[in-house]
Amino acid sequence: MTVLLFIEQVLNGLQFGVMLFLMAAGLTLVFGVMGLINLAHGSLYMIGAFAAAAVAGATGSFLLALAAALTAAAAAGALVEMLVMRRLYDRDHLDQVLATFALILIFSETTRWIFGSFPLFLDIPDWLSGPVSLPGGIEYSLYRLAIIGTGLAVAAALFWLISRTRLGIRIRAGESDREMIAALGIDISRLYTIVFALGAALAGLAGAMVGAIQSVQVGMGEPVLILAFVVIVIGGIGSIRGALVGALLVGLTDTLGGLLLPELFKLFMETSSASTTGSALASMLIYILMACVLIWRPRGLFGGSA
């Protein structure tokens, strides 16, 4: 394994991590502020991807596709919050899990009815296609670098929103004591709708951007949702900083583990199954990481902080 290959895989891990952050940030906002377990968050990721693919196919504009993904996912999130979630805030988590699982089935079948069962494809725009030369002679995908830059920019914007704006103050107050801010005259229902729509928009953005490097298909959000839950458990529920750190840890662990462990097992185990054993262990690494973090810090790395 060369140094250039290792650096390229580190960049791939960062790209995977910031994509997970876009998913996990919305999920941790919704759970932290509302105390709501939303299994349908992956469906909002899928909606963003399908909206982007449909608009890009009709207009040829990638920027319009991203705007459509944000709008469609945010609108779907707001409707779900107003029509379904408001009835679940005072219910136990089992009811929330069952209701949001039903939403997964509804969204999946509706998407299949509208777009069919065959995957759609979203092309990378010409101005983001091809490789770019990095220091050290590394050739890396410009589009993947754009995903990394977009994710980090969104992270900075979220930190600013939560810590420096009036809406952020209300979100943090709603996380701490929702009854008190309702008594102060703040419309808690409107705040919840905004938070849910914001989280949905982030998921839709992630789906749209990833849709250009993989096929867009029904059910594509559920595997990512599982990883997003791992991220917020590692980072700490309700923490945007934890979501970012946890997502980068998961992205790098998953990518580098899949690269290094098979090579290490082949180096130290002179058997035909060494590479297979290494690959199997690599697929478990992120869950081993989660277990280690929970043993050390049961509330996650940044549990209880923004």
Rank of each mutant, 00 (worst) to 15 (best):
L248R: 01
A78C: 01
A206H: 04
G246Y: 03
T111F: 07
L267R: 10
W296I: 11
V84N: 10
I114R: 07
V97Y: 07
F302K: 00
L256H: 05
A280L: 14
L39W: 05
M220W: 03
I106R: 03
I226R: 04
T271H: 15
G304A: 09
P131S: 15
F115N: 04
V216S: 07
V245F: 06
F16Q: 03
L145F: 10
V224E: 10
L261V: 06
D90A: 09
A155D: 05
P125I: 05
M19A: 13
L249P: 01
T71Q: 08
L244A: 02
Q96L: 12
G57E: 11
L29A: 09
Q15V: 02
M19H: 07
M1G: 13
A74W: 04
S279K: 13
F302P: 04
I232L: 12
L294R: 03
L83F: 06
G149I: 00
S43V: 01
L63I: 12
E8K: 00
M269L: 15
S117H: 10
L227V: 09
T59Q: 12
S275Q: 14
F159C: 04
G257K: 01
M209F: 04
V18S: 03
V55Y: 05
M46G: 08
I7F: 11
G151H: 02
P119T: 11
L260T: 02
V195H: 00
L88A: 08
G42K: 00
S133T: 13
L252G: 03
G251R: 06
E139R: 01
D90E: 14
T110F: 06
A306C: 03
E270R: 14
S61K: 05
E179D: 14
R86G: 15
V132E: 07
I237W: 09
W127C: 00
I147P: 05
G42F: 05
A157F: 03
L205G: 10
L227C: 03
I194Q: 09
G211P: 08
V33Y: 10
F101Q: 11
T255R: 12
A53Y: 00
A157T: 06
V210P: 02
F62N: 00
A51Q: 00
A306D: 08
I213C: 06
T28C: 09
I162F: 15
D177W: 01
R172E: 01
G236D: 12
D177C: 11
L252C: 12
Q96M: 13
Y192V: 15
V293D: 05
A208R: 02
S133D: 12
L122Y: 00
G257R: 00
I169T: 14
I181W: 02
A49Y: 02
G304I: 03
I162N: 13
L152G: 06
L70W: 06
